[in-house]
Amino acid sequence: MELFGEIITGIGVLFLLLGNFGILRLPDVYNRIQAGTKCTTLGALLTIIGVGILQPAWFWKCLLIAVFILVTNPISSHAIARASRKIGVPLCDRTVVDKSKNFKGFKKQEKK
């Protein structure tokens, strides 16, 4: 059981490492947020659940924390991305399509 918990925590840490790697390698804010949310979701979940398995007394608490992370993680990334789009952070030059000018909310913002 202890070994199992350690393996799960290890895989989680590996995903967190990959997430950081992605933040360093990808070209612009939006792509970096992709790495920052995706890899850290599973990374943090596995790390926390692994800790729960290592310490059975904490298992339910850890599960609850994991659920809260799953619920709140997208919200924070969404807030950062929305703010960067509103102040006009440019997209990288490998971008193939940008339809944000046709978006209803964008037109509303222009009118104001």
Partner: peptide, 24 residues
């Protein structure tokens, strides 16, 4: 969620960075 993680991990580790980003 699991698929997403492997997908992004693959894109990050690939030496050529196989991305084609856009806003739709």
């Amino acid at each position: 969620v699991v698929k997403a993680n492997f997908d992004v991990a693959y894109r990050v580790l690939h030496p050529k960075l196989p991305i084609k980003p856009g806003i739709v």
